[in-house]
């Protein structure tokens, strides 16, 4: 890690935390992306509206960032087939577990939720084991 990596990690993290704080204190919603995205499945209700606008902002961030002339690295090693399997596991798992990296890992831990701390340790562990198996054993 060089200084630029450290600085951008801290700045990016602060932006994520600030966005979650603003959503929480102005609208009383949790910035958990899996829950927000799953709430966009039909049938739509009143709750789909704030989710839709938040997601629209999230989706717009990449094209707007590119407008500044900067490139966004996106290196996907896995094949589309494997990514589809991964996506299914992420979709089902985050709903069953009630959150993802943002909902449990940031918002939940920030309010010292035991459920979120346990969930975060669990998905970090199984993700680490999965990467170890794929990269070092297979």
């Amino acid at each position: 890690m060089n200084y630029l990596t450290i600085l951008s990690a801290l700045a990016g993290g602060a932006m994520i935390g600030l966005a979650a704080a603003l959503l929480l204190f102005t609208h009383k919603h949790t910035a958990g992306i899996s829950g927000i995205a799953a709430g966009m499945l039909p049938p739509w209700s009143e709750g789909s509206v704030w989710r839709g606008w938040f997601l629209a902002g999230l989706l717009a961030s990449a094209p707007l960032y590119r407008l500044s002339g900067a490139n966004i690295a996106l290196d996907l090693d896995a094949s589309p087939g494997l990514l589809a399997i991964a996506g299914l596991l992420v979709g089902y798992g985050t709903r069953l577990g009630g959150g993802c990296t943002s909902g449990h890992g940031v918002c939940g831990i920030a309010r010292l939720s035991v459920r979120s701390i346990v969930a975060t340790l669990t998905f970090m562990l199984t993700a680490g084991i999965t990467v170890f198996i794929v990269r070092h054993l297979l």
């Binding site: 989706l59 996106l74 896995a78 596991l89 577990g97 669990t122 998905f123 999965t130």
Partner: peptide, 30 residues
Amino acid sequence: GKLITGAAIFGVGWGLSGFCPGPALLGLSA
């Protein structure tokens, strides 16, 4: 059990891809 099982399944998908929901949605425009 649901919390642990769900988080464990999510972790496997995250480890296979490097994607969690936010970055995956954000990446669509690429």
